[in-house]
Design a protein around this nucleic acid. Structure first.
Lengths: 138, 138
DNA sequence: TTGACAAATCGACACTTGTCGATATATTTA
DNA sequence: TAAATATATCGACAAGTGTCGATTTGTCAA
C-alpha cells in the first residue's frame, strides 16, 4: 500500500504543472503505476510492488469479467449495463470499476448522468509487456 | 499444457490412458487451471475464476520478485537462496513458493534435502497469452 | 428550485491473506 | 540407529478484500 512513495522527477514536474494550473487533466488521470517486465534484469522494491498491484487488479473474477466485457464490446460501456451480466449490486460493481480505473486499466467517461468505461490502450499494452517472460525464462 | 476447454479426442484418449494405468503421472500433476485470454469472445464463470486465480498468484510483491529472480537466474534456484534476497522468513517464502507452484507457474524439484524451483514454461506462455488484449481492445 | 435517477461513498460484516514462531516431516550423514 | 539440516505445515494474529444496504453526490429535465 506504500506504492506511491518513489515518484521521482516526473511526478514533481507534474505537481509543479498542477500548481500552475496547467496539468489538471494529467493530474486527474491517475498515472499508470510504474511497472517493469517480470523478466527484467533487476527488479526494485517499488517496481515489484507496482507490478503486483497491476496483477492484483485482475485477481478477482468479477474484474476479469469486466475487462473481458469491455474488450469484447470494443467500445465504451455504461456502468449500468454491467450490474446484470455480472450479477452484482451497483455498489460492488462501482467498487470494482474504481479498482480497475485506479491502476490505469480502465478509462472513465461521464456522459450525462451515466458513467462509461473502456479499456485504456496504454495499460493494456503494458500488461502484456509485463506478463511477457518468454526469453527470460526456462 | 493446453487449456481444458478443448477436450476433444486428445482429452478422451488421455482419460483412456489413465484408465489403463498409463497416465498416472499426468493425473497426479495438478493441471494448470483452465484459463482463457482476457479478450476471449465469451468468458464463462469458471474461466473467469481460473484466470483471476492466475493473476492473483502474481498479485503480491514477494511473488513477483520470486518469479523475477527465477527468470533472471535462468536455472532452477534453491529455496534456501531466496530467504535472504527476499528478506522474508523461511515459512513465508515456502508459503509463496507453494502458491506459485499450485497455479502451475513454478516447478518444484527435490535435490537431496534441498528444494529447487524454476519457471514452468507452459504456464509462463499461458500467462502472456491470457494477458494479451491487443486486438480485442480499444 | 425541485424531482428523478445514476453512480459513488459509507458502514458493517464475513472471509481471505501475508506474516512469523513453533513444530513436524523428510533427507542425508555419521 | 541417531543427529543434523532443509523444507513444509500449523496456529495465531493483523491487515486487506468483496459484498451489500443505506446514504450521499452529481447530473439532467421540468
Amino acid at each position: 500500500m506504500e506504492s506511491l512513495q518513489v515518484r521521482g522527477p516526473a511526478y514533481a514536474a507534474a505537481a509543479a504543472a498542477d500548481l500552475a494550473g496547467v496539468g489538471l487533466m494529467a493530474a486527474l488521470e491517475t498515472p499508470v503505476a510504474c511497472c517493469v517486465p517480470l523478466g527484467a534484469p533487476t527488479l526494485h522494491e517499488e517496481e515489484a510492488l507496482a507490478t503486483a498491484e497491476l496483477f492484483k487488479a485482475l485477481g478477482d473474477p468479477a474484474r476479469v469479467r469486466i475487462v473481458n466485457l469491455l474488450a469484447t464490446a470494443g467500445e465504451a460501456v455504461c456502468a449500468c449495463d454491467l450490474y446484470e451480466p455480472l450479477g452484482l449490486s451497483q455498489p460492488t460493481v462501482s467498487h470494482h470499476l474504481k479498482k480497475l480505473t485506479d491502476v490505469g486499466l480502465l478509462m472513465r467517461e461521464q456522459r450525462g448522468k451515466w458513467a462509461y468505461f473502456s479499456l485504456q490502450r496504454d495499460a493494456v499494452e503494458k500488461l502484456a509487456a509485463v506478463a511477457d517472460l518468454k526469453g527470460a525464462c526456462c
